Simulated assay, not measured.
Amino acid sequence: MSRNGIEGKVVLIAGGAKNLGGLLAREYAKAGAKAVAIHYNSDAAKAEAEETVAAVKAAGAEAAAFQADLTSAGAMEKLFSDVVAAVGRPDIAVNTVGMVIKKPILEVSEAEFDQSSAVNIKSAFFFLKEAGKNVNDNGKVVTVVTSLLGAFTPFYAAYEGLKAPVEHFTRAASKEFGERGISVTAIGPGPMDTPFFYPAEGEDAVAYHKTAAALSNFSKTGLTDIEDIAPWILFLTSEGWWMTGQTILVNGGYTTK
């Protein structure tokens, strides 16, 4: 197998049933991946996971879907174990899982904080841990974070603040796994035009986000499109492997660091 290409590789996508994850699954198959393992969280996404599996198979790759709530270390370990048993050790592991809370700090409950922490911090940490244990030498690992990491804004403390640790996880993992040729990066999209975005935003906020990026006028919706992000992830997990330990904001000029 080529060190830098996608052809013949095994890919695991956490949150791979729909939206960005579903597009990535299809694009990896088109690029010649041998197999794509598609994780989904709950029964609500089962039908979409099955559609994505069918699309991946139609593109010529093996595919299998795996349901798991990844907010426990045991569930993450089982996911990787099941994937290895079903399609082999992954060469590429991409984590698209996340949860948005948009509220003033004074209104965030302990239960909301704990849930967001479990999704955005704990699952990201243990995804990297299991990737480090299971991804083949010269593998590639990417975690999707958020461009809000470069923002100076209210109301997102329980989201951007709980994505921020992933930057540190990424740097540490890149050093620890680098001796095996594994690259580890984080990519921060701008607000994406998916059902994941709209429930947290009011009408005025949506209108603002649609005009906030420097390249908004050249987007279909004014927002970041999943088609704008997928090529970056494919690049970072193939020819772009030399980029490691970094958080890259891909947002059309929405925020910067």
Results as ranks from 00 to 15, higher is better:
residue 29 A to H: 04
residue 34 K to F: 07
residue 35 A to H: 05
residue 17 A to G: 06
residue 59 A to R: 04
residue 19 N to H: 14
residue 13 I to P: 10
residue 38 I to E: 01
residue 35 A to N: 05
residue 44 A to T: 13
residue 34 K to S: 13
residue 35 A to I: 05
residue 15 G to D: 06
residue 72 S to N: 08
residue 73 A to I: 03
residue 13 I to V: 10
residue 54 A to G: 09
residue 44 A to G: 13
residue 39 H to Q: 02
residue 55 A to N: 06
residue 57 K to I: 14
residue 25 A to K: 00
residue 48 E to P: 04
residue 74 G to L: 13
residue 27 E to R: 15
residue 22 G to Y: 08
residue 19 N to K: 15
residue 40 Y to H: 03
residue 54 A to K: 12
residue 30 K to E: 12
residue 30 K to F: 02
residue 58 A to I: 11
residue 56 V to D: 12
residue 80 F to S: 12
residue 37 A to M: 11
residue 24 L to T: 01
residue 77 E to C: 04
residue 36 V to A: 08
residue 82 D to Q: 08
residue 52 T to P: 00
residue 58 A to D: 14
residue 25 A to D: 02
residue 66 F to K: 07
residue 22 G to L: 07
residue 57 K to S: 13
residue 75 A to M: 12
residue 15 G to A: 03
residue 23 L to I: 08
residue 64 A to K: 12
residue 45 A to N: 07
residue 62 E to R: 10
residue 25 A to L: 00
residue 82 D to V: 07
residue 23 L to G: 06
residue 31 A to W: 08
residue 79 L to P: 01
residue 28 Y to K: 08
residue 27 E to A: 14
residue 77 E to Y: 11
residue 52 T to F: 00
residue 42 S to L: 12
residue 59 A to Y: 11
residue 22 G to F: 10
residue 51 E to M: 04
residue 17 A to N: 01
residue 59 A to H: 11
residue 45 A to W: 05
residue 58 A to F: 10
residue 36 V to T: 04
residue 28 Y to M: 14
residue 63 A to N: 04
residue 71 T to V: 13
residue 74 G to H: 14
residue 43 D to L: 12
residue 78 K to E: 10
residue 19 N to Y: 11
residue 66 F to D: 07
residue 44 A to K: 14
residue 74 G to C: 05
residue 69 D to G: 05
residue 69 D to C: 05
residue 28 Y to A: 06
residue 34 K to A: 08
residue 13 I to G: 06
residue 70 L to I: 14
residue 40 Y to E: 02
residue 74 G to Q: 13
residue 53 V to F: 03
residue 69 D to Q: 07
residue 14 A to V: 13
residue 65 A to L: 04
residue 18 K to Q: 15
residue 14 A to R: 11
residue 56 V to Q: 08
residue 79 L to K: 08
residue 79 L to M: 13
residue 22 G to T: 06
residue 62 E to K: 08
residue 38 I to M: 05
residue 60 G to I: 11
residue 18 K to P: 00
residue 14 A to W: 06
residue 68 A to Q: 12
residue 74 G to N: 13
residue 80 F to I: 09
residue 74 G to M: 07
residue 49 A to T: 00
residue 52 T to E: 00
residue 26 R to Y: 04
residue 43 D to M: 09
residue 32 G to D: 11
residue 47 A to V: 07
residue 21 G to I: 02
residue 27 E to C: 10
residue 64 A to I: 01
residue 40 Y to P: 00
residue 14 A to P: 00
residue 22 G to R: 02
residue 36 V to I: 05
residue 41 N to P: 01
residue 13 I to Q: 09
residue 20 L to C: 03
residue 47 A to Y: 10
residue 66 F to L: 13
